[in-house]
Design a protein around this nucleic acid. Structure first.
Length: 128
RNA sequence: UUAGUCAGACAAAUGGCCGCGCCGUUUCAGACGAAAGGGAAAUGGUGAGGAAAGUCCGGGCUUCACAGGGCAGGAUGCCGGAUAACGUCCGGUAGGGGCAACCCUCAAGCUAGUGCAACAGAAAUAAACCGCCAUGAAUAUGGUAAGGGUGGAAAGGUAAGGUAAGAGCUUACCGCCUGGCUGGUAACAGACAGGGCAUAUGUAAACCUCAUCCGAAGCAAGACCGAAACGAAAACGAUAAAUUGGCCCGAUUUGUUUUCAGGUGGGUCGCUGGAGCUUGCUGGCAACAGUAAGUCGAGAUAGAUGGCCAUUCAACGACAGAACCCGGCUUAUCGGCUGGCUAAACAU
RNA sequence: GGCUCCAUGGUCAAGUGGUUAAGACACCGCCCUUUCACGGCGGUAACACGGGUUCAAAUCCCGUUGGAGUCA
């Protein structure tokens, strides 16, 4: 009985997103993954073997000061969090904020993120 | 009321839903990991500034070095005080700005030495270009430093006397220097006497001199647990062992275990209760110190504060995000609020 | 997060506090050549920004901005 319950808990744990941490992981995605661009964001993606998705966010110092960069990071993370149930699993994704993203709000960032997801065909088919 | 000046506090608010870091409690699991460590849910609490910034100074803390002292190098620079310490702060002196409240000042020493001062100008640390005066006759010689001109700076300034013309040559006032006296802890101020200014200009954010201070590096400091890699020793083992393989033959390799050492990936500590904050009292002009009561307010590790909706406003809210901690400085900044003081106008 | 350093025409760069800030490549104009190139002559173009010291600052001092390196 208990192992069954534990497995439920582990599924619940998937709500917390996994992040890319090492410079090496980012380099693998940059070199071997595919990239799509729109006005505000850049999205790299690459299939991995882990069975779950990992997200990396990169905001350059050219975009703004620390407050602006943190704010954009939070907007992107919120977009991913609220939409991750609709995505295919087992992919590494890196989102890069472009310079024009500093004057936006949440709605623009979310629509830009979903636009790039569609370009990568990462939407789960049974959800459409 | 307007204008100004100084000081202080604030840094949009409220509610609902979803979500994040840390801490406590309860419940569940004892998975995962070699170990150290560590999981999930519910609930409660808590969660970024006045500059968190720049990293310009100072201190704590840690490691390294060190008998003691000096040189070199660096920093500071009116006087006194505060402080753990400071290049900070407070009070005063001097100079400057403002009608005033008040504000500003890298404020030792070029009369210890050395260096530099372009161009212009006759000449730049040195004396005579034009001048003025005398002799003499147009030239020249001598005296002089008033006036002109150049320059940032040309042998104290103004006035009067004096003189052939002039000159601190003489006198008065001011400036400078020297001497003691008075007041003050001192910087300095005041009055007095003398010098007769040949101590000759400026520059020390030029070298330098004098006085005081400084060992170096920085939490990516440092301490601990520890897979791996590189090693050491002991035991076992060449008729052996391991890998490949269903087994044998064959092929390839030299090892296996234990202990020590080592310290990579990883983890834990350092990490936040402190020169702490609030209020009152006492001492002090003040900075500040002492004391009593109350109080605990982030601690992440690729880095937590976000999103949506509704309402209100001065109406879309500036500058901006802790990363070991503290005291300052500097820089950025929407604004409105409170208090003291000053000037002007009006009213009483 | 800590530490160290740099900034001079479009580019690379020299420059003891004192002339109109040296030079090279590039660009523009003229000459040469049938034309281009080479060559010759001439020209445009800069001290990151703001204060201060000084008679005088690219240079000395302070602050700001931008850039680079290094420490796991």
């Amino acid at each position: 009985m208990w192992p069954f319950l534990f497995s439920i808990n582990k599924e619940e744990n998937m709500k917390n997103y996994h992040s890319l941490r090492k410079t090496r992981d980012f380099q693998i995605v940059y070199n071997q993954g595919k990239s799509k661009v729109n006005k505000y964001l850049v999205l790299y993606s690459k299939k991995n073997d882990l069975g779950y998705n990992r997200l990396g966010i990169s905001v350059s110092k050219k975009v703004g000061n620390s407050v602006v960069r943190h704010h954009i990071t939070r907007l992107i993370r919120e977009s991913y969090r609220l939409n991750q149930d609709t995505l295919k699993q087992s992919y590494d994704m890196v989102v890069i904020a472009r310079n024009s993203a500093k004057d936006t709000n949440y709605h623009i960032i979310e629509s830009a993120f979903l636009h790039l997801i569609n370009l990568h065909h990462l939407k789960r088919v049974d959800h459409i």
